[in-house]
Design a protein around this nucleic acid. Structure first.
Length: 269
DNA sequence: ATGGCTTACAAAGTAAGA
């Protein structure tokens, strides 16, 4: 039996719930992880997704900013207690939520801080926060006692484009937040912890351009195609042989009133 | 020319995204 997992930075779940419905209808993931829901938990549109057959929802949101949720047609088990997620950098800013899926796969949904404009932790607190956040993720996943032997999937808007061809111009973006060496080096260290497998690059060679985000500010995003791959689905090595398919839904960037991110999907056999 | 746009919010201009 196949398991389809998707991730999508939705940039307001209330504003774009019809777009999510369209995605669920045509792409039928079993589980959808969303980021930037921008809604407090009591206001999450549970009933809307229940009617679409997605009756299992865990959400962790706050007013105006951030927020993550897992929308599923399979039963979910919370693994981290009441709040369903872990706090990073001593902030309760709703950037992580995790559940266990039927069959035992543990799923982690992250919204890593964007990091602001200036790629210097001394001059920019947001960039410092981003680096610390990834370091703390690394420390946590490096704790073998907690994670040993588990089948795990890590998804989300990680806000880092790690490889040369995960951005439209490696040379021009080396000093732009999302593709700087301090970020990509930390992401590599995070991947090392459990030997995480980058599912999109498992199917697409490293020398092919691959993006999941295009700025709103571009006049014609498709023509200029100045994208970055900021959204990821990683699996632990014990799931590598189950990887059956990967898709980045570029077409969703052209949907009416789109998010600036598009859905990323993985299928596990 | 990467910021030209988009979102939320004790609503007119901020803050934030990345």
């Amino acid at each position: 039996m196949a398991l389809r997992i998707a991730t999508w930075n939705i940039n307001s779940i209330r504003l774009r719930r019809e777009l999510v419905a369209k995605f669920l209808h045509f792409h039928a993931p079993d589980v959808l992880c969303v980021q930037e829901t921008k809604v407090q938990d009591p206001d999450f549109p549970h009933a809307f997704f229940h009617k679409l057959g997605y009756r299992h929802i865990v959400a962790r949101g706050m007013k105006a900013y951030n927020g993550v949720a897992i929308i599923s047609r399979l039963p979910l088990k919370a693994t981290l207690g009441e709040r369903a997620g872990r706090d990073f950098c001593d902030r309760q800013d709703c950037r992580h939520i995790s559940v266990k899926l039927p069959g035992g796969v543990e799923l982690h949904n992250f919204y890593v801080p964007a990091g602001g404009d200036i790629p210097d932790p001394a001059a920019n607190d947001k960039f410092a926060h981003k680096l610390r956040f990834v370091e703390e993720m690394t420390g946590w996943f490096a704790d073998k006692a907690e994670h040993k032997g588990k089948k795990m999937v890590l998804v989300g808007d990680l806000n880092i484009a790690p490889l040369e061809h995960d951005v439209w111009s490696h040379r021009q973006l080396l000093n732009v937040v999302s593709h700087t060496p301090p970020e990509t080096e930390r992401m590599a260290a995070l991947m090392e912890t459990l030997g995480w497998v980058d599912s999109a690059r498992h199917f697409v060679p490293a020398d092919r351009k691959l993006y999941s985000w295009w700025s709103y500010r571009n006049r014609d995003w498709a023509a200029s195609d100045r994208g970055r791959r900021l959204d990821h689905i990683w699996v632990t090595p014990n799931l590598k042989k189950s990887l059956a398919k990967s898709e980045i839904l570029r077409a969703a960037r052209a949907w009416d009133t789109p998010s600036d991110h598009v859905p990323v999907i993985v299928e596990l056999a």
